[in-house]
């Protein structure tokens, strides 16, 4: 086996060169090449972390905005509802007042009309009494041919009318 031929000076030389090459490779890697790759990786990790942070923050903001929107919508909804209720109530109150007014006016008109009717009726009744008295006096005068005691006819008519009104 050539590997175990320790008499060969090349075997030792190989190991010496190995030491030199390995040392140089180690120094170049540790001082120069690996830090470069490490820097690229660190830069990438930073960028990605920053991007993800931005994404997370944007998402949090979006969530907050959505919550805000929901809240605002709910508030607007509640406000609108209250306004509608108030408007309805106001309209109802106004209507009630108007109808009450109208009722009162109508009542007053009815009362006035009734009064007028009553007046007209009493006056009509008074006129009727008079007409009745005159008619009765005329009829009686024609029938009897002589004038009667002028106080007697109204008395009789009043008596009849009173009896009729009962």
């Amino acid at each position: 086996m050539p590997q175990l031929d320790f008499g060969n000076p090349l075997l030792l030389a190989q190991v010496v060169w190995l030491g030199i090459i390995f040392l140089v490779l180690y120094l170049l890697l540790s001082r120069w090449a690996l830090p470069q790759v490490g820097a690229v990786l660190a830069h990438r990790a930073e960028t990605i972390a920053a991007d993800l942070d931005v994404a997370r923050r944007a998402k949090e903001e979006a969530d907050a905005a959505v919550a805000e929107l929901t809240r605002a919508t709910r508030e607007a909804h509640a406000g609108a509802q209250a306004e509608i209720a108030a408007a309805v109530a106001a309209a109802k109150a106004k209507t009630d007042a108007e109808s009450a007014d109208l009722n009162a006016k109508l009542d007053a008109q009815i009362a006035a009309a009734e009064e007028r009717i009553a007046v007209a009726r009493t006056s009509a009744l008074g006129a009727l009494e008079q007409v009745a008295v005159e008619t009765a006096r005329e009829v009686v005068g024609r029938l009897i041919g002589s004038s009667l005691d002028p106080a007697l006819v109204p008395q009789a008519v009043a008596g009849v009318l009173a009896a009729r009104a009962k």
Partner: peptide, 15 residues
């Protein structure tokens, strides 16, 4: 899905 993707991305980065 966005939340899940963001979470997995953060986990992958070790954040």
């Amino acid at each position: 899905s966005f939340e899940a993707r963001l979470k997995s991305a953060r986990e992958k980065q070790g954040l």
